[in-house]
């Protein structure tokens, strides 16, 4: 187990280094002078020269990278020339909203996807199974922004049940916060459950054919215990993997829903920095999001190892 963690950690270092390099390279795709683009109307020769000096834009590319990397390694991801806020502060202020959104999405997806997967796996090929499979397949073809707009149309504009774009911070009111997060959370949860359902269903179907399930039946255990303990527990490993794989897509979904529902999260921060040409925030934000994503995937891998006694005890 410790060896496994060590090997995984050792792999993290080159991946994160490569991520910084790629982020840096993308930031240099910009045609023209970064300083002029960033300064916009205020691009006087003096301002441009000052910004050049501040950003080290006159140095060769590799030196600029090392310079930037050095800062990053010391926690300096840059400072917005527009607001004077550091990238870390800007992200930290927005992170709770995004995390809440992601957790709601994942919980909602599990709450819908897992029971449906179990019910389908119990009678594969039944009318219920085929109906759920059809709905799941159809849901996978719904673009996230479309679903968001549909939910706004139905629940905010027609039924007046929930607000569409009035974000309430958690610190103001728990209920208000949950109400304002309900539609964006539901949007992502409705996009999340089909993958969970599909993977868990096929995994459960094969698990239910295992000898140890026949053995559990031969023991006279209740169907409930057989499904939830004997079948779901081994399959939960797969579930963890799916959730890990889906996080990348879910982060993309968060960018979209935060934009549509006007949530002050990290995704909207990135979009705003694009619209306002705040490239420092964009670069640092993309890097932090990517590092966060890599780390979450690492944690998911570890969770996998913790859940599976065969890996936990140092085999495989």
């Amino acid at each position: 187990m410790l060896g496994l963690i060590g090997r995984r950690l050792a792999y993290l270092v080159p991946v994160i280094l490569a991520v910084t390099a790629l982020t840096f390279l993308i930031a240099n795709l910009l045609p023209g002078d970064l300083a002029i683009v960033m300064l916009g109307d205020q691009a006087t020769p003096e301002n441009v020269a000052a910004l050049h000096k501040q950003l080290g834009l006159d140095l060769p590319l590799w030196q600029q990278y090392l310079h930037w990397l050095w800062g990053v390694l010391h926690g300096d991801f840059g400072t917005s020339h527009r607001t004077g806020q550091t990238v870390l502060n800007a992200i930290a202020g927005r992170l709770p909203v995004t995390l809440e959104l992601l957790i709601m999405a994942e919980l909602g997806g599990i709450l819908i996807g897992v029971p449906l997967a179990i019910l389908c796996a119990v009678r594969p090929g039944s009318a219920f199974d085929r109906t759920v499979a059809g709905i799941a397949f159809g849901s996978l073809s719904v673009p996230p922004f479309m679903l968001a707009i549909l939910l706004i149309f139905v629940f905010a504009l027609r039924l007046h049940l929930l607000p569409a774009t009035a974000y309430v911070p958690l610190s103001d009111s728990l209920l208000g916060n949950l109400r304002s997060m309900a539609l964006p959370g539901a949007t992502l949860a409705l996009l999340e459950w089909p993958t969970i359902m599909r993977v868990l269903r096929s995994d459960m179907i094969s698990t239910l054919q295992e000898d140890y399930i026949a053995m559990a039946r031969a023991k006279g255990l209740s169907p409930r215990r057989i499904l939830l303990v004997h079948a779901l527990k081994p399959s939960s490993l797969t579930l963890v993997t799916v959730i890990g794989l889906n996080i990348g897509r879910l982060i993309g979904g968060a960018v979209i829903t935060e934009s549509i529902f006007a949530l002050p999260g990290v995704g909207r921060l990135l979009l705003e920095s694009i619209y306002l040409r705040d490239f420092i925030i964009l670069q640092g934000g993309v890097l932090l999001v990517a590092i966060g994503f890599v780390l979450v995937n690492f944690l998911v891998d570890m969770l996998y190892a913790v859940l599976d006694p065969r890996i936990r005890h140092g085999r495989a």
């Binding site: 991520v19 790629l22 897509r249 982060i251 990135l270 964009l282 999001v289």
Partner: peptide, 24 residues
């Protein structure tokens, strides 16, 4: 595979947004 791993280390939409933002 190493190169594709690095691309996969980014949430895809975020990477797309960033590249389009810089590239135009």
């Amino acid at each position: 595979i190493g190169t594709t791993d690095v691309l996969l280390a980014f949430p895809p939409l975020v990477l797309a947004l960033a590249i389009v933002a810089y590239l135009g």
